[in-house]
Simulated assay, not measured.
Amino acid sequence: MTALPTPRFELPLLQPGQAQKEMYHNEALIRLDLAVQATVLAAGANIPPVDPEPGQAWIVGTAPTGDWAGHARSVAGWTAAGWRFLAPPEGMRAWVADSEGFALFTEGDWLIGVSHGRLIVEGEQVVGPRAGAIEDPDGGTTVDSEARSAIAAILLALREHGLVDTP
């Protein structure tokens, strides 16, 4: 739309002496509406919905058809003037309503419903990527059934929370 768009979301910038500035300004607002605190109804759809409502958005799949053709992996938003497409920048996140989780755009693709690796609390990593499987306690020269029960309970909790893989 303009020769000098913004670098991340390609929002059209107004130029000195430019005619019809309201068109560029309105286009920028529409794209901001799609990008800021992004929320989509679903991710990975390839066929545009038949009767969308203004403000509804989707993450387009890898083989789009119809009005979405040529916009793979974009955020497609329906407006009063038709479809608008936003090419996601690296690191963009969107809430995906139908799966009740986030999608993250990284390395040219959307990671949908995937844990993003770690949890930071007060600047310290407290949870990282899933650890490998840990076997239940077995063997040894002295058997302490209470300690074994406690260790087994801890391992069960870690497995249920997905922090440690199941052997």
Rank of each mutant, 00 (worst) to 15 (best):
P54Q: 11
D67P: 01
I59H: 04
F102E: 13
G77S: 04
R130I: 13
I59T: 03
T79A: 05
P137S: 06
D67G: 14
G128I: 10
I112R: 07
V121T: 10
F85K: 12
T65D: 06
G123M: 13
N26V: 05
V96R: 09
D51I: 02
D67L: 11
S149Y: 05
G128R: 06
I120F: 06
E146T: 10
R31K: 15
I59A: 05
Y24E: 03
D144K: 00
V50I: 11
M92R: 12
Q37L: 12
P48R: 00
G139A: 12
V50G: 01
I112G: 00
D109G: 05
W78N: 05
L34C: 12
L119D: 09
T106L: 07
V36S: 11
A147V: 10
M92A: 13
A87M: 14
I47Q: 08
V60Q: 10
F105T: 00
T142L: 13
E135Y: 02
V121I: 15
I134P: 00
R118Y: 13
R73C: 01
A45T: 06
G132Q: 14
A38F: 07
I59P: 01
W78R: 07
D109F: 02
H25G: 04
T106Q: 14
P52A: 08
F102A: 07
D67M: 10
N46S: 02
S115Q: 08
A94T: 14
A94P: 12
T141N: 12
V75D: 02
V40S: 03
R148M: 08
A42S: 15
P64E: 11
P129Q: 14
G77N: 01
P129M: 08
F105H: 03
V60C: 06
E100H: 08
A28D: 02
H71N: 14
D136A: 13
I112F: 02
V114L: 12
W78S: 03
E100F: 09
V126L: 06
A57M: 12
P49R: 02
P52V: 04
W95M: 11
L34E: 03
I47G: 00
G55Y: 08
V96Q: 12
S99R: 15
R118W: 07
R93N: 05
I134E: 04
N46W: 00
A45Y: 03
H25W: 15
L32R: 13
A76G: 03
E124N: 15
A103I: 02
D51A: 13
G128H: 07
I134D: 00
P48A: 00
D144S: 08
T79I: 07
F85R: 12
N46K: 00
M92S: 02
A147I: 03
T62W: 02
L41T: 03
P129S: 10
D98M: 05
G108Y: 05
